[in-house]
């Protein structure tokens, strides 16, 4: 799995960090997403997918064969 983010659209909702804290973090000064792990471990795939679906601003893109 490869995770890609389009941070220019991010509203800093924290939804991704709540769901997949191993994969995403947020900057302190504006809450914008930080990708911690572009190729997360298999055990975080489900939560990364969940974050991509639930991100309100459609920032997160998952490439399954990455």
């Amino acid at each position: 799995m490869r995770v890609e983010i389009h941070a220019d659209r991010c509203i800093g909702s924290g939804v991704c960090v709540l769901l997949a804290p191993e994969v995403f973090d947020q900057r302190d000064d504006d809450g914008v997403v930080v990708l911690l792990d572009e190729h997360p471990d298999a055990r975080h795939h489900e939560s990364a997918h969940d974050a991509a679906t639930r991100c309100p601003a459609l920032v997160i893109e998952i490439h399954d064969e990455g």
Binding site: I11, G12, S13, G14, V17, Q26, D28, G31, V32
Partner: peptide
């Protein structure tokens, strides 16, 4: 976006 990102550190940063 300018407003959301200004409020985010206070109310939606998970840390």
């Amino acid at each position: 976006l300018r407003f959301r990102r200004h409020m985010a550190p206070e109310v939606s940063n998970i840390k």
